[in-house]
Amino acid sequence: MTAIVLSLKPTLELTDDQFYELCQNNHDLQLERTADGELIIMPPVGGESGRQEADILIDLGNWNRQTKLGVVFSSSTCFKLPNGANRSPDAAWIKRKHWQALTPEQQKKFPPISPDFVIELRSETDPLQPLQQKMQEYIDNGVKLGWLINPQDRTVEIYRLGQAVEILNSPKSLSGENLLTGFVLDVINIFNWS
């Protein structure tokens, strides 16, 4: 099952509050909104992808609990990007000082901030190109580092602010580089699950 895209313009345009309310009233759906106002209904992931995503979050969360450098978010979190899009990466991390700069109200709803770091995990039903476009959108909106993990092709695309995309074939691990100092994700376990 692939995502469903609904074009709402020009007849219907949701305000930020209306989109938030729509999401709150439809907890069973994972919704995103493009910068052009299109509504994207994301299908649930299967067991294998859910397990892979959980492993990534556990590793990222454990590292963050040790370092206390930031805040970790799951795929259920929707961020309001500077271009107006509402996006939900599979995993995200924000430096503590950036998170604390938001008001309590901003933290409660869809945070109006680009994460510092994002991960997208391609499931078997995800076409690659929309994920690549989403990753580029993150970078264009200020995300400093992003990983597109593709278990089907055993590749990882690394997106960095101000740099060309780097593609790794069958990497054993990924480094958080200077942004997530000391964070290493064991990618072999993710690839071996697929």
Rank of each mutant, 00 (worst) to 15 (best):
I4D: 11
S7M: 09
P10D: 12
T11V: 11
L12T: 12
E13T: 14
E13R: 12
Y20D: 13
Y20I: 13
Y20W: 11
E21P: 00
E21Y: 03
N25G: 10
H27I: 10
Q30E: 10
R33G: 04
T34V: 08
T34W: 03
E38F: 02
I40C: 09
M42F: 05
P44Y: 07
G50T: 01
R51S: 13
E53S: 15
D55K: 12
I58K: 12
D59M: 12
Q66P: 04
K68F: 03
G70N: 08
V72Y: 07
C78Q: 03
K80L: 15
K80V: 00
S88K: 06
R96S: 08
Q100W: 07
A101L: 01
L102D: 03
T103Y: 05
P104Q: 13
K108L: 09
K108A: 14
P111C: 04
P111L: 07
S114C: 11
S114W: 03
S114H: 09
D116V: 00
S123V: 04
D126Q: 08
L128S: 04
L128V: 12
Q132S: 11
K134D: 01
E137Q: 13
Y138C: 03
Y138H: 02
D140R: 08
V143Y: 01
K144P: 00
L148T: 06
N150H: 07
Q152K: 15
R154H: 13
E157W: 02
I158G: 01
L161Q: 09
K172E: 15
K172Q: 14
T181C: 02
G182V: 14
F183Y: 04
L185H: 06
I188R: 15
